[in-house]
Write a protein that binds this DNA or RNA. Structure first.
Ligand SMILES: [Mn+2]
Ligand SMILES: [Mn+2]
Ligand SMILES: [Mn+2]
Ligand SMILES: [Mn+2]
Lengths: 222, 222
DNA sequence: AAATATTTTTAGCCTTGACTAAAAATAAAA
DNA sequence: TTTTATTTTTAGTCAAGGCTAAAAATATTT
């Protein structure tokens, strides 16, 4: 029983199912999957049949889909590869954190013996990617970390930037311009009750961050 | 006129045409291309029509095919990427020279702005890949080098290993076991007229190399 | 409970890149 | 110069992964 290799398209769907189920536990619905993949619902249904045939998901018509053990392992491995390649692109090739996603989206599908483990060695076994997302280890175990949205901090509280909940290049570029890279220290000085915007100190600078920013930026309180 | 990106399959065919034409100048025949690609002649004909539609080749039914200017640029760029990734895999990830081809066959197709140039910078602008093959520069210019087959050396002549004409893992592994890596020094001690085998000194060791090895190993005479 | 709205699946079509078998063109031999 | 052999192309088929439009199932209102 030589488990045939999944195609890149299959891998991408598995990853999408994993990500949706992570935020919203329970079966993943066809429309949510299609939206995440940027395809039609009909295409998603097609793919779900293929993944079901390959035992990578448990799919019940009209009821949604969940990953099988094998599907979950594959999705986790894909996320591991994606994030390791992102570390490579930023740490070794010098790309900015908003430039690496599309590359990693391709690189995660490179197949072959030992590549991931050698890359991991070369990078020094990073535990988080350039966006602060955890990198599962070779056995699929996840790092756990307590982080909170900047929005929850009250005036006087300080934090270290640990991640983002919006990975769009525009948001990442905006953060970089504000000096809000991973590891940056900030302190909430004031919060406006009306719109939840916050005046913050970032290193030496002061700035006002909107509710939207507060919602999408993770910090560890110090 | 936004030149649509070629698919991976198209790129592989272009590279195959380039490689055949390199050894055997003139139009490349369908059967030769199919053999190089490991596909049927019918599939090659199909692809030649697609490549011709995209102006990447000049194809005349029954007469063979040659690369257009655009096709030649693409093939050269693909070879550049392939060889740079091979350098990465050997120099940075620590793979052996017989392990990297299949990875590079996939990595060469990764698309996106600046990746190749950043990789080239990171690797220190290597001019040859782990098999001694030249890496064209960003403008598609080729390095030139005088090398000769080991077979042509007479007893008493010494050489430095500069490349191979057979890239099969078995040959590459055999050479590594014999101490014949790139840069290794050797001296021909005797040659047997009957079968063209040669007794050689490799560093401290002595060994007998067959005609087949002599034919597939390139050296620079010193 | 019926009617309506939403979600999901099915049906039918398309492109890419394979394949085999048959036909046509070209090359080699008699 | 015919005949035969080889090479190449065409014709027809398939699977993957998309699409749109129509049908069916499920959920929500009235
Ligand atoms: Mn991907
Ligand atoms: Mn990331
Ligand atoms: Mn390739
Ligand atoms: Mn090589």
């Amino acid at each position: 029983m030589s488990a045939i290799l999944p195609t890149s398209a299959e891998e991408n769907y598995l990853k999408a199912i994993f990500k949706i189920a992570e935020k919203e536990p329970g079966p993943v619905l066809t429309n949510a999957l299609a939206a995440e993949m940027g395809t039609s619902a009909a295409s998603a249904t097609d793919m779900l049949k293929r993944l079901s045939d390959k035992q990578l998901v448990a799919y019940e018509k009209y009821r949604g889909v969940t990953l099988s053990e094998a599907g979950s392992r594959l999705a986790t491995s894909l996320i591991r590869k994606h994030r390791l390649w992102e570390v490579f692109l930023v740490d070794k090739l010098g790309f900015a954190w908003d430039e690496v996603h599309e590359f990693a989206e391709q690189l995660e599908h490179i197949q072959g013996e030992n590549l991931t483990e050698r890359l991991d060695d070369f990078l020094g076994h990073p535990r988080f990617d350039p966006h602060g997302d955890p990198i599962p280890d070779a056995k699929g175990r996840w790092q756990h970390r307590t982080q909170t949205r900047l929005l929850t901090l009250s005036p006087g509280q300080r934090g270290i930037v640990t991640g983002v909940d919006d990975h769009s290049p525009t948001f990442l570029q905006y953060l970089a311009e504000m000096g809000l890279s991973l590891g940056a220290e900030l302190e909430v000085l004031e919060r406006t009750a009306y719109d939840q915007s916050a005046k913050v100190r970032i290193g030496e600078r002061e700035a006002v961050l909107s509710e939207k920013v507060g919602q999408n930026l993770f910090v560890r309180i110090i």
